[in-house]
Computed example of a mutant assay.
Amino acid sequence: MSVASGSAAVALAETAKAQGSTDLVPPAEGRDAYGLDGALGQANYFDRVLRGLGEPAILTENAKIIGATFRLTEDYSLRRPRAARIIFLEEAEPRAVSIIKDYGTQTATNAKPIAVLRYFDGQAATRLRLLIDDRERFWDASPVPPDWWAIACQARNGNRPCPPATDGGTSLLEGRIGPKKHAILRHNPDSTSLVQQLVRDVF
């Protein structure tokens, strides 16, 4: 490894540490402290999930944000919640650093999440930035789109709602770039969705 690339790695690590240290402090308690009610148009349980992971608010007006950022949080019935916060480095875009928090297979109620630091550079970083910059699929996406599968299933089921999948769950994707702030909520997202593409690239 060259001296230049070694210096760049050290700089990335220091930036990540500086950002990560503040990320470990949850915001003050209070109604809608994460600003998700306004972002999603409805109250939901993700504020509690994010508090449990020690994740800070990124959508509220007073959130301390350095550069473009997005966060992907998953909460599924058969596994513990996990979240990945990706921070694009202002002075070295599209390079990015990801802080991943995952409970893994721990089952204790007071289990602490495993924190992983991951770097994205080159094509991987460019692909992430293009995905999160996708205007049609993210910035103009409907917060709560119709659940066409549930509608069709209910029609086939004598107008009775179908039970959710065994591993049913929800993914929340939040993003903030400059003055732009947005979040989308997806129940059991299909494999072609933006949420699932980011899951494959991030986790």
Results as ranks from 00 to 15, higher is better:
residue 3 V to K: 14
residue 3 V to N: 12
residue 3 V to A: 15
residue 4 A to K: 14
residue 6 G to R: 12
residue 7 S to C: 14
residue 7 S to Y: 14
residue 9 A to R: 04
residue 15 T to C: 08
residue 16 A to V: 04
residue 18 A to K: 10
residue 21 S to K: 06
residue 22 T to V: 09
residue 22 T to M: 02
residue 23 D to Q: 08
residue 24 L to V: 10
residue 25 V to Y: 00
residue 27 P to N: 04
residue 28 A to C: 02
residue 28 A to T: 02
residue 29 E to D: 10
residue 33 A to P: 04
residue 34 Y to H: 10
residue 37 D to H: 05
residue 37 D to E: 09
residue 38 G to Q: 03
residue 40 L to W: 02
residue 42 Q to I: 09
residue 43 A to C: 06
residue 43 A to F: 04
residue 45 Y to A: 15
residue 46 F to Q: 04
residue 47 D to G: 11
residue 48 R to K: 09
residue 49 V to K: 00
residue 50 L to G: 00
residue 53 L to S: 08
residue 53 L to P: 15
residue 55 E to S: 11
residue 55 E to T: 14
residue 58 I to P: 02
residue 61 E to C: 02
residue 63 A to P: 01
residue 64 K to C: 08
residue 66 I to M: 07
residue 66 I to G: 03
residue 66 I to Y: 04
residue 67 G to P: 14
residue 68 A to P: 02
residue 68 A to T: 04
residue 73 T to Y: 08
residue 77 S to R: 15
residue 77 S to Y: 01
residue 77 S to M: 08
residue 78 L to W: 10
residue 79 R to D: 05
residue 82 R to H: 11
residue 84 A to C: 12
residue 85 R to P: 05
residue 85 R to I: 08
residue 90 E to T: 09
residue 90 E to N: 11
residue 92 A to K: 08
residue 93 E to W: 08
residue 94 P to D: 07
residue 97 V to A: 07
residue 99 I to N: 01
residue 101 K to T: 00
residue 101 K to D: 01
residue 101 K to E: 00
residue 102 D to K: 01
residue 105 T to Y: 15
residue 109 T to C: 11
residue 110 N to M: 13
residue 110 N to R: 11
residue 111 A to L: 01
residue 111 A to G: 07
residue 113 P to D: 00
residue 114 I to C: 03
residue 114 I to G: 00
residue 115 A to Y: 02
residue 116 V to Q: 15
residue 116 V to L: 09
residue 117 L to I: 01
residue 117 L to T: 00
residue 118 R to T: 10
residue 119 Y to H: 07
residue 120 F to H: 15
residue 121 D to K: 15
residue 124 A to T: 08
residue 124 A to L: 03
residue 125 A to M: 11
residue 127 R to A: 15
residue 128 L to R: 04
residue 131 L to I: 13
residue 135 R to A: 13
residue 136 E to S: 14
residue 137 R to E: 13
residue 138 F to M: 10
residue 139 W to Q: 13
residue 142 S to G: 06
residue 144 V to S: 14
residue 146 P to W: 03
residue 147 D to P: 04
residue 150 A to P: 11
residue 153 C to G: 06
residue 154 Q to A: 14
residue 155 A to V: 10
residue 160 R to K: 11
residue 162 C to M: 08
residue 163 P to Y: 03
residue 169 G to S: 09
residue 172 L to R: 03
residue 173 L to G: 01
residue 173 L to F: 06
residue 177 I to N: 12
residue 178 G to M: 12
residue 180 K to T: 13
residue 181 K to E: 12
residue 187 H to R: 14
residue 188 N to S: 05
residue 189 P to F: 04
residue 190 D to N: 15
residue 193 S to C: 05
residue 193 S to Q: 05
residue 193 S to V: 06
residue 197 Q to E: 14
residue 198 L to I: 10
residue 200 R to W: 06
residue 201 D to W: 07
